[in-house]
């Protein structure tokens, strides 16, 4: 297991180098550059343009810029935003908790509903319940997220007025951000109603963000469960006289979870990378929205280092998923 982990960690190094090349190249391939975009529609004189490019160092050959970027990275310098002049790293860590909070709430909701729904569908295979669950999952999976988010806002915020439209907490409350997680900070602040307000703000984004992972988890649980229920060891478990609940909930579930964990891991990875659509719809101040804004401003340092940080998070999550794998499946642990 330790050897396996070391190997996985060593493999991260070439992956990182690959990502730096891609993230560095990607934003420079886009038409336009930060200077032009900052100038806006007023335009800019040739001399001023050249001077600004030279100031940022973007007039040098591409490989020189890349090597300098790598050198800075190795010194722990992720660069400063061209727009806000803030260090990319500190911007990232200010915004990241918001994304994590939303992503965790969404994935918990998806797991708590998705896995039981998949199990029920599998054990009642072919029944009306199975078809209803799988039909709903298919609808959820196929739903355009943008449309779904707006629909929920219209119904629950607009018509019914139950939930707020955007943001993380009502403007009435103001307190110091200690952890960056609004649910925890609002509790720590001790202000009456702050926590309830934070929860209210989370409900709709969580539902919207959880919809696709929930559908995927439910479908994956069902198919894995169906496969496992036909295995010999499930027959053995039943031959012992175990109740259906123990057979399904202990013997089958543990084995069926192996592919489901992969799906959950992949979802967590993508959700942590910032739910671009959801964060945009609900003006959620997370890294998804941050990336989108930076790309439209061609804020080179933010895009290239931001992508790198997001990739690092996805890789760490994947590594954790592989470790969980080993915990659940002893055959992998002993290899």
């Amino acid at each position: 297991m330790i050897g396996f982990l070391l190997k996985r960690i060593l493999l991260l190094i070439p992956t990182f180098i690959g990502i730096t090349i891609v993230s560095f190249g990607f934003v420079r391939v886009l038409p336009g550059d930060p200077v032009l975009l900052m100038a806006g529609e007023r335009g800019i004189t040739e001399e001023r343009y050249a001077a600004l490019l030279a100031e940022f160092g973007y007039n040098r050959p591409m490989w020189q810029q890349y090597l300098e970027y790598l050198k800075d990275l190795l010194h722990g310098d992720f660069g400063n935003s061209l727009v806000t002049k803030q260090p990319v790293l500190s911007e990232f860590f200010t915004l990241f908790p918001a994304t994590v909070e939303l992503a965790l709430c969404a994935i918990v909701l998806a797991i708590v509903i998705g896995i039981p729904a998949g199990i029920i569908a599998a054990t009642k295979r072919g029944s009306f319940i199975d078809q209803s669950i799988m039909g709903t999952a298919l609808v959820g999976y196929s739903m355009p997220i943008f449309w779904w988010g707006l629909l929920l806002i219209i119904v629950f915020s607009g018509t019914l007025g139950w939930t707020p439209v955007s943001g993380r907490i009502s403007l009435l409350y103001f307190f110091e951000q200690k952890t960056g997680f609004m649910l925890i900070d609002s509790l720590l602040s001790g202000q009456k109603g702050a926590f309830a307000s934070a929860v209210q703000h989370l409900i709709l984004p969580t539902i919207v963000l959880a919809t696709i992972p929930l559908a995927v988890i439910a479908r994956q649980t069902r198919s894995a469960m169906l496969e496992v229920l036909g295995e010999d060891y499930v027959r053995t478990a039943r031959a012992k006289g175990l109740s259906a609940r123990l057979v399904v909930g202990v013997h089958a579930l543990r084995n069926a979870m192996i592919p489901v964990i992969t799906v959950i891991g992949l979802s967590v990875g993508t959700l942590l990378a910032g739910a671009i659509l959801t964060e945009t719809i609900f003006s959620w101040p997370g890294i998804g929205k941050w990336m989108i804004d930076s790309i439209s401003r061609r804020d080179y340092p933010v895009v290239q280092s931001g992508l790198l940080l997001i990739a690092a998070i996805i890789m760490i999550v994947n590594l954790l998923v592989d470790i969980t794998y080993g915990l659940i499946n002893p055959r992998i642990r002993h290899q």
Partner: peptide
């Protein structure tokens, strides 16, 4: 081999 549960 397949009659015993691989996870337990």
């Amino acid at each position: 081999i397949s009659s015993l549960n691989p996870c337990f």
